[in-house]
Amino acid sequence: MRDGLVELLDGRLGTTAWLSHGMPVIEIGAGQLPEVVRVLRDELGFDMLLDVTAVDWLGRTPRFEVVWHVFSTRDCQRLRIKTRVPEEASEVDSLVGWYGSAAFMERECHDMFGIRFRGNADLRPILLYEGFVGHPLRKDYDKHHEQPLVPYRDTADRGTQGGPR
């Protein structure tokens, strides 16, 4: 790990960074995101956004935790950024203007959790389809609740045992 990174982050961002199995993690408020990303990308050299995802802590408030992972190709250093958003206002700023890879990953996060990314004009469903109601990775979405697009055929007339169907 890059020397003094934790101290550098604390000093520059005013956060309290800790190490999670060797990877520095910072937890910020949702409103701090643009400034933090600016510092990370332009001053500290974190030029690649690896991942955007979320965790649903059903029962806790704030309910959702949005997690970003960034990477510095210069120092081969990874960093995790976390923030909590409440269920009623599950919105964060989009990183589409900073990193091109944010586009698809934010669409997926919106699909799965319903978290809106302000500034990302394209939040169409990417893994799910138009007409799907709900956000499956939320803990209160029943895993077995299917929403078929095609009406099922009457399987009584399968006709698979010889003869025409």
């Binding site: 799910l128 499956p136 895993k143 077995h144 609740h145 099922y152």
Partner: peptide
């Protein structure tokens, strides 16, 4: 066995 997968194609085609 979840929300995303069609449980068998014979539900839509023979």
């Amino acid at each position: 066995n979840n929300y995303a997968v069609l449980q068998g194609i014979d539900k839509v085609i023979p």
